[in-house]
């Protein structure tokens, strides 16, 4: 067992210089002679380490710098500053030995040929990665089995549904059994069933090959199901790195209390004294209560009102994340 991290980022930065362009002919003419530029700090000093076999959720709102970071990790972008090393390689050198061990999936972009069945496109990957025939067959069979692809890979890709297409895409990317997976929104636009399939598969692949996975997703269900650890970034900077449970604890000092009444309670009944009311109907009320006060408040509630049922929940992870970003704006 190695204890050295497989992915190591230290104070990683990426700055884009863009040309400012004001509206109007005058400004356009002026820009011919003198172009004003502005620096955008897409990634502004991020550090973290990933151990082999980890699945880590990489979260942040649009424009936070997630994709830029993933691109630097997969060798597509050259960092402006800081250090990055993956499996001991510097990704931006794009050495073949490195590229053979990684895979990048971007949910909104396809790489399979539209007109032909996926199984034919897989031949390209076999040639690119020089996968020996026997290993290729074995891996393919395994992927067919895990992703239930038997009927899909012989049809032209254009005839597949969105979810089916993502499954054959993912299979193509994994034929060379990469040790590191960069998944950028792999489930975007898919229906719930298709999302779950992809999610289950990622977990299984991670388990079987002890592969390291860095995943971005807007669907918290993905993150909750797959990632014990999450890294949250905002405006190019690290906000949080730790267990998902800790994130909820740290950023949400409130719990949600749902009270069902045995009989209809007049809507005018005073509830604000227990906590802030999130939602209210004649036979139910949802309250947000500070963690420290939960025990005392619930006993008050039970004593004061005709309560038939009472549940205490953590707020949804979406709500927590939203709160994190709002707090930092």
């Amino acid at each position: 067992m190695t204890t050295a991290p497989v992915i190591h980022l230290h104070e990683l930065r990426k700055t884009y210089t863009i040309h400012k362009r004001e509206a109007g002919t005058r400004a356009a003419l002026r820009s011919v002679f003198h172009r004003e530029t502005r620096d955008i700090h897409a990634v502004d000093g991020i550090s973290f380490d990933l151990e082999q076999g980890e699945i880590v959720g990489f979260l942040g709102p649009n424009g936070a710098g997630k994709t830029t970071t993933l691109k630097m990790l997969s060798g597509l972008l050259y960092p402006t500053g800081g250090a990055v090393s993956v499996l001991g390689y510097e990704p931006f050198r794009r050495e073949n030995a490195y590229l053979r061990q990684i895979a990048l999936v971007m949910g909104q972009r396809n790489q399979l040929n539209w007109d032909i069945p996926a199984v034919d496109s897989y031949e390209v990957n076999r040639a690119i990665y020089e996968i020996p025939e026997a290993q290729f067959r074995a891996t393919l069979d395994e992927l067919i089995d895990l992703l239930d692809l038997a009927d899909l890979i012989t049809k032209p890709v254009r005839n597949l549904s969105l979810g089916e297409r993502m499954r054959v895409e993912i299979a193509g990317v994994l034929l060379h059994r990469p040790k590191i997976l960069f998944l950028d929104e792999p489930t975007i636009g898919l229906d719930v069933t298709a999302q779950r399939r992809i999610r289950d598969f990622i977990a299984e692949y991670n388990h079987r090959y002890n592969a390291t996975v860095l995943l971005t997703s807007h669907y918290m269900a993905d993150v909750e199901a797959l990632c014990r650890r999450v890294i949250v970034i905002h405006h190019g900077q690290l906000l949080f790195d730790g267990a998902l449970a800790t994130l909820v604890e740290r950023f949400s000092p409130h719990k949600t209390v749902i009270v069902d009444f045995a009989e209809r309670v007049a809507l005018s009944a005073e509830m604000d004294c227990y906590g802030s009311v999130v939602k209210r109907t004649p036979d139910q009320v949802v309250l947000s209560i500070p963690k420290a006060a939960v025990a005392a408040t619930t006993s008050h509630l039970l004593a004061d009102l005709p309560v038939s049922d009472l549940t205490i929940e953590d707020p949804s992870i979406e709500a927590v994340i939203e709160q994190v970003f709002n707090a930092n704006n």
């Binding site: 997969s74 597509l76 990048l104 972009r109 396809n110 690119i128």
Partner: peptide
């Protein structure tokens, strides 16, 4: 234009050849 050229660059093959 579509950004799918990124996939070419992540392959262990000479990108110009590909």
């Amino acid at each position: 234009q579509k950004g799918t050229f990124d996939f070419v660059l992540t392959k262990p093959v000479d990108a110009q050849f590909m």
